[in-house]
Nucleic acid binder design. Structure first.
Length: 430
RNA sequence: UCCGGCAUAGCUCAGUCGGUAGAGCAAGCGGCUGUUAACCGCUGGGUCGGGGGUUCGAGUCCCUCUGCCGGAGCCA
């Protein structure tokens, strides 16, 4: 018998099919059962009428617990009353494995409880919508770079030293030596960009920061493109073009899921170029005007970022952050070295930083001085300095945090639902 | 690391002034041939987070510990 999938149920109209899945919910009027069957691709109502059913199977369906795995055979019928337009007129019902009492009932649960049952929570409609959108975002990211001359060259996850030396790293034992989980593929990308021109890496990233907010994970996915012969201006242009493309793909392919999440589409439809470019100095002046106590030379506080983004209807690019507040490899602006060729893309609606990047310092002597000023061990960066010794060029790149992007596009209040199994401060299970 | 908040049935919560523990949902049983968070009736379900204290009496007041949630700093 033909196996049907809910996602493509229209193709099976009028056919007798086998549906393999799980019992998501049921209602009954005694002589007629309405079984909501989830097969992973969607949920469809299977209607089982007593008069047309095997007596034992009809009784089995009646007492079948939620989330039992089941196989239903029946005919696919068009029905206007169905939210998906189709239902299955069941002729046979079989329990594959009866479930124990299921902890996640159809309503009323707090996030703490749901997070403890994350492995089961993933079965819910809302989580399906979010993770499908995440999958589309990831595919759009890859398509963008693959189609625009970038080569995927992944950076290592186990690294010998701090890439930037400032933030906390997860340390581990590497056959008697200390090693760390990567917090950025950036430095390696500079090597691959010098080898291949335009490259990107895409993988998990780890930060052992004691951050306990709705915007932080200990383990998150980041895509980092790097371009040889590109300055800050080019970098901002690519970041903008890239983000417009990703949001556009989600709007094109995930209308159903966005509707499930009740996402207001207007702010997403407004994601069109050009994004406003705001010099750090102007941003500070504007914030001070609005009552912030920010001082020129400091990085933005969380409030500042929110206040600033709410002034615009689309993402904005803040550039020329203070050199002192940024990583050692950022190239200072020769006209005003207090500020550097760095840039962040801040998402609207209070979501804030989704992209951070900039133009890298290409001069060996300046870079050596920066490494020294940041009190970093020079030996560890000899290979990195080689990139300046052998054919150094102006180059730029950026990193986009996948989970923050998913949270923003989905309109979620918290980053924890954007990844199947979030790793959060002091919370690593399930 | 710092600052707030919360902890009562499987889940979400109520519990007045300190006076013998409640609801809805879920579960179990019964009813119902078109339900959409179905509905109607019945039943079972509690170490009120742990420990200590005040009191004739503590879910309620005090101390302490634990767990969780939110935020700050830091960052994507």
């Amino acid at each position: 018998m033909t196996k049907a999938v809910v996602e493509k149920i229209a193709q099976f109209e009028g056919q007798e099919v086998l549906l393999q899945g799980w019992l998501a919910a049921k209602r009954s009027s005694g002589k007629i059962h309405f079984l909501q069957v989830r097969d992973g691709t969607g949920t469809i109502q299977c209607v089982m009428v007593k008069a047309n059913s095997d007596e034992e199977e009809f009784a089995a369906a009646d007492r079948c617990p939620q989330e039992s795995s089941i196989e239903v055979k029946g005919t696919v019928r068009k029905d206007a009353r169905s939210p998906i337009g189709f239902e299955i007129e069941a002729t046979s019902f079989k329990i594959v494995a009866e479930a124990e009492p299921y902890p996640i009932s159809p309503k009323d649960h707090g996030t703490a409880f749901l997070m403890e049952h994350r492995h089961l929570w993933l079965r819910s409609r809302r989580q399906h919508a979010i993770l499908r959108i995440r999958a589309t975002i990831v595919r759009a990211i890859r398509d963008y770079f693959d189609n625009n001359g970038f080569l995927l060259v992944d950076a290592p996850i186990l690294t010998p030293a701090a890439c930037e030396g400032t933030t906390t790293l997860f340390e581990l034992d590497y056959f008697g030596e200390k090693a760390y989980l990567t917090q950025s593929g950036q430095l390696y990308n500079e090597a691959t960009a010098a080898a291949f021109g335009k490259t990107y890496c895409f993988g998990p990233t780890f930060r052992a920061e004691k951050s306990k907010t709705r915007r932080h994970l200990m383990e998150f996915w980041m895509v980092e493109p790097e371009m040889a012969y590109a300055d800050l201006e080019e970098n901002m242009r690519v970041a903008e073009d890239f983000l417009v493309y990703v949001v556009g793909r989600v709007l094109e392919e995930r209308q159903v899921e966005l509707a499930t999440l009740e996402r207001d589409l207007a702010p997403l439809e407004a994601v069109k170029g050009p994004f406003p470019r705001v010099h750090y100095k102007d941003a500070v002046a504007k914030l001070q005007e609005l009552g912030s106590d920010i001082v020129d030379g400091e990085d933005f506080g969380a409030d500042d970022e929110t206040v600033l983004t709410k002034l615009y209807d689309r993402p904005i690019i803040v550039h020329h952050y203070p050199t002192a507040a940024k990583a050692f490899y950022m190239k200072p602006d020769p006209d005003e070295p207090k500020y550097c060729f760095s840039m962040d893309v801040l998402a609207p609606e209070g979501y804030g930083e989704v992209i951070g990047g900039g133009q890298r310092e290409e001069c060996k002597e300046v870079l050596e001085a920066a490494i020294e000023a940041h009190k970093l061990p020079k030996e560890a960066f000899e290979w990195y300095l080689d990139l300046r010794r052998y054919g150094s060029v102006p180059h730029s790149g950026f990193g986009l945090g996948v989970e923050r992007t998913v949270a923003w596009i989905c309109g979620l209040p918290h980053i924890r639902e954007t990844i199947p199994f979030p790793r959060m401060l002091e919370k690593i299970t399930p």
